[in-house]
Each structure stands twice: as C-alpha cells, then as structure tokens.
Design a protein around this nucleic acid. Structure first.
Lengths: 191, 191, 191, 191
DNA sequence: TATGAATGAGGGTTCATTCAT
DNA sequence: TATGAATGAACCCTCATTCAT
C-alpha cells in the first residue's frame, strides 16, 4: 500500500509533465497558463509549485517527458532488422499521426519554433531532443552505407518537419500522407 | 492637401504594418506587445488604435504586407526565362537569408506555426499567403511538364519550411546551405 | 488650463511617492501592498505601473521624496544664526513629532531598519538620506569649533534614532520629550 | 522513557525557537518564512505545527528565548562588584558584537521595529524583553546613587539602539566602537 | 509524533484596450 | 488626428496553514 502511495506521489509529477506536454502541444507555450496544465492534470494550481518551482521548470519536464517518449519509440524501431525498415516505420508512425498533426502540428517542431522566441534556455532543451532523433536517423543512413548520412538525415527530418507545418497550416492530413509515401519511395531508392 | 493627409495616413499605416511584421518575426506573436510594434514604427502607442481597431487587425495588416512582399518577389522571379531558373532563384533567395533564418526562422513558417494556436482567424490569413506561394511553385512544375506538379511543389516548399526550422533550432545557417544545394540538384534532376 | 493639466500629471507621480512614504512609514515596507499605496494616493492599481516600473522604484521615489523633505527642513534651519540654535531647533522638531514617533517610529530609521533586510539596493538609498542629515549635523558641530564634530554628530543622531525606537516600542511620547531636553542641555554644555 | 520523549520534544521546541530567533535577526520577520526557520532548525515544515499552532506563536517563542538569553547575560554581569563595572561590561559586550550588528543590527531593536508594524500583540512581547533590560540598567544607575536613574538608563539604552541602527545602516562597525568608548567615558563621569 | 503533500488566498506585474483632451 | 494617461482582467508565484497517513 505504501507502494500505491509512492506511485501516486511520483505519478503526480509525471502526470503534470505529461499533461503539460499535451496541453503545450495543443495550445502552444504562450497561450497555455499554469491553470490550464493544472486542470488537465487534475491538480490544484497552488500544488503545481510543490513539484515545479517555475513554469519554465514544468515546461522543461514536459520536454524531457517528450524526449523519453521519443526514445521509447526509437527502442521499438530498433527491433526491426534493417535500417530501411526502421526509417520507413518511423515514417509510418508520422503518417499515422497525421490527423493530430493537421490539428496541432508536430509537437517537437511547434515547440522548437515557439521556444526559440524566449529568453530562457528552453530552446536548447528541445533542440537536444530533436538532435537525438536526428542522430538516430543519421545512424540508419550510415548503416545503409551512405557517406552522406548526415545530409540525408537532415533532409528527411526537415521534410517531415516541413510537411507537418504545411499539414497543420492547411489543416490537411492528406498532405502528410502523400509526402510520406514520396519519402518512402525516396528511401527505397537510396538502397 | 487631402492627398498629403492621405499619404501621411497611408504611410503611417504601412509603417506600422511593416514594423509589425519585422518585430513579429523577431519576437514571435505572443511575446510582442503593441508597445513593441509602436516603438519600432516610431508611433505613439495610443495612436496605433486610430489605424487598427485591435491587435489582431494590426497582425493581419502585417501578414498582408508580408504577402505583398512575397508577390513582389515572385514578380521579379517571373522575369527569368525558364521555370527551373525561377525555382532555383527562389532557392537562392532562401539560402541568402540563412543567417536571418538561423536567428529567427522563416517569417511565414514561424508565423503560421504560432497563429495556428490562436482562436481568431489569423491562421487563415497566413495560410492564404503561404498557399499563394505554393501555387506559384506548382505552376513552375507544371510549366516543366510535370503531372505531379502539386506534389512536387508541396515537397519543395515543405523541404524549405523544414530546413528553416532545423536551421533555426540548431542555429546553424550551414544546414540551409547544404540542403539548398541538394534541392537545387533535385530540381535539375526533374527536367 | 494646460498648466492645470500638467500639474495634475506631474502631481500624480509625486502624489504616489508622497502617499508611499506615508503608508510605508505607517505600515512598514513588507506589510504595505501596492494596492495600499494606490488607495492612499487615490490611483487605480494598474495605473501605478505607468509611473513606476516596479514596487522598488516606487519605494525609491518615496525615499527621494523623504530626502527632499529633510533638505527643505534643513534649509529652514539654516536661517538660524548659530549652530547651537540650529541643532536645538532640529531637536525641537523631533520632539514636536513625538506622538507620531510613538505611533510609528522615525520614518528614516524604521525604513533603514527594514530595507536592510532586503536584497535590492534600497538600503543604500535610505543610507544616503540619513548620511546627508548626519553630515549637516557634523557641520554644525564644526561651526562650533569642535574637533570631534563627526563623533558628536554620530552621537546626537544615534541618540535620536535610539530614543525614537524606545518611544515607539513603549508607545510613550514622554520618553522623547525627556531625552530631547537632556540632549538640549548636552548641546549647551558643548559650547 | 517518557523523559526521553519529553526531552526530545522540549529539545525540538527550543531548537525551533532558537533557530527562529537567529533567522529572524538575519532576515527580518517579514522576509522569513516558516520553511526558512524549519530548515535552520533541521525540522520538517509540517512538523513545526505540532509545536506551534501559528507562525506568531513561534515568533513569540523566539522572543522568549531571546529574553532568557538576555537574562543569562545579566546574571553574568551581576557577578561584577560595582554598577559602573557592570554597565561598562554590558557596553563591552555590545562593542564585541559590532560586526554582527553592522550586518544585521541589534536583534532586540530590529525585531521591535518590525513587530511594531503588525497587528498581532507581538510588539508587546519584545517590548517586555526590552523593558526588563532597561529596568536592570536603571537599577545600576540607582546603585550609583543617581536620582535620575531612569532618565540615564533610557539615555544609555537609546544610545545603544541608535548607534546599532547607524552601524547597521552604514555597515560600519567602527561607529559602534567609537560611540561605545564615548559612552564608557560618560559612565565614568557620572560616578 | 512525524511528515510529505495539498490548498487557496493574496501579492506584484503585464498589457490590450479605452479615455480625455 | 494625435497622444499621454487610465483601466482592469489575467497571469505567475509565494506561503501560512491544513490534511492524510
């Protein structure tokens, strides 16, 4: 039972970070108030400060949580035998989320875009998360024997970020679907 | 004399819209106050409301001004003889701005990303501007005889938006330069 | 009429600073909210920030106003012919205020005491005000031909600060009266 | 075993009161949070309320502890044979603490000054402590055969409080040293 | 007794918008 | 038209106090 208590305690911090990431994705950093996040996590506003000293720290925790989510996604992808399959599975994941993307954009990209305008160092935190995913993509291209792995990784990741932005701006999930298939063919062509 | 008055009025209005677009690009929509824009345009805060009823209307004017700027850029590109040259010239323009992009991102893209989070209809305004540029790119691919012109236009534009985001996030203008050259080769390969 | 307007405008800043000094004296720095000061000055809370960017700046303005008040008091004292008369007149002023002192202490002293606990530099501002009065007292002792003018000035000023504290703590104006007379005799004895 | 429990309880209570007095002196009443005191006493915040129902009660306990400290100091002074020696020894104690005074002022005086601004009755508590020390000083002057013992006691104590305030305001321990010597000569002159 | 966690009232500050002239 | 000043709603954050175990 003390375990239950413990998990509840610990859970609250994570519940807050998770709720924060969700709300931040949906509403944007500047439009989101602490009260919004607290409500989403079903936590009284004042209590948030027991877990996070400032709004910035909560945002940072949200970014970390997002990073861990991406890491776990990567772990799953790692199970696949070939780098091509891994990259295409990554693509499929993106395509599957196209409705969410049409509504709110890519969580990583919109966050990076918005955090860049702030004075605090949070833009570095999201850049790190993005960098790690980018590195992983690069390693896949390396495994495919490409000398230009970094350039290709940047191209692929940029293509995803860009189509996410268009998908979101035009509220059209179809854009992501079409571009996703095109990228798939492109990956196949590199083998 | 009414002409003088009119031109003064119009001048101030446009000065405000122009300053707004600049400041919005640099600071982001939510971080920018009316006072910031007024200061950048050298107009007293109270006076802004003579030209724009709300902050939203001023933002909309800024978007319109940005749209006209893009149109004028397109007009210049139109002077070039072949669609390939036009597209590659567009690319060069983007590459030339890579330092600004590394600092603040693509004006159109960052604005679209941020405006999407708002309740007002401003996201439609920036989508329209983006759509017009996208249509023009599509027409170039059509002129190149491509059946998949729309898809290609989306791909090219997304690639630019995505690399702008990465360039901005990683504060590295080199990313734009490298990806720009890659896209140039890609356009050549489509001929 | 524009003069009336001007004086009203200028007056508001000063009204705020004056009200601030009064309320700060009565309630103490930490117990005083901006709303308290705003109410005392009959100014809406939000409007305070048009004149002062932070609470600290308002406090500083209050200290400055207090300093100017002391300066004007000194100017009046300067009219008296001998340094002894000037010092004794200063003493009489203190004694006359004994009821206010019994209720709230010496404005300068209580402020200095409280501001010392803060991180901002406001303790330096009140120290400067206090230092200027102290210097003036020293000059009187010098004019009396005393080599130990500084030491005497410190002694006299400390005696006043101390008896103010006791008068306030014990809520007994009589303490100030008695000690004031004693200090008067002491000054006479130095001639 | 109940003794153990009792001594533990008592110990914690006193540790809290002692830590409170120390922190209150250093940070001031209003700037000090319960958490500050709890940390200084190495007691969990929630546990403080087992010993003190409110912050006020803890402050009162701190004042009491300070009073007992002064009483013990007086007991030591009482060992000296003559009232002059006792008073001068008191002075020496004050002078020895001049560095602490320059940093934080006299504990009794700063506390009295701050508590006066509050609605609760704590100002009476510190006044009582101050009054007892004052009474003791008065008794020394009486023992010296002075009819004006009360007036002299008030003068001496006020001089100390005032020079403490100046020493603190100007952050200059030298002020206390010089004024201390002057007061010593003054006491000698009264014999 | 002991303690981490919860709660909510209140304070300083910002800013779009409006007012008065 | 032009402009300094006014207004108030909303936000982040602190902290004494209470709760649950």
């Amino acid at each position: 039972m003390s375990q239950v208590t413990d998990s509840t305690r610990t859970g609250k911090r994570e519940r807050l970070a998770g709720a924060a990431m969700r709300v931040l994705h949906e509403q944007g950093v500047e439009k989101t108030t602490l009260a919004d996040i607290a409500r989403a996590a079903d936590v009284p506003v004042g209590n948030v400060y027991y877990y996070f000293k400032t709004k910035d720290q909560l945002i940072e925790a949200a970014i970390d949580a997002h990073g861990r989510q991406l890491e776990s996604m990567i772990s799953t992808l790692e199970q696949l035998p070939t780098p091509q399959e891994r990259l295409k599975s990554l693509l499929h994941g993106w395509i599957e989320q196209r409705d969410l993307t049409a509504r709110y954009g890519c969580p990583t990209g919109t966050l990076a875009s918005e955090l860049d305008k702030r004075d605090d160092g949070l833009d570095r935190a999201i850049a790190k998360v993005m960098g790690e995913l980018l590195d992983w993509v690069e390693r896949q291209f390396q495994a495919m024997g490409r000398d230009d792995a970094r350039e290709l990784a940047v191209a692929l990741f940029a293509a995803y970020q860009g189509i996410s932005l268009l998908t979101n701006t035009f509220r059209d999930p179809g854009l992501m679907a079409v571009e996703g298939r095109r990228l798939e063919r492109w990956i196949d062509s590199l083998a």
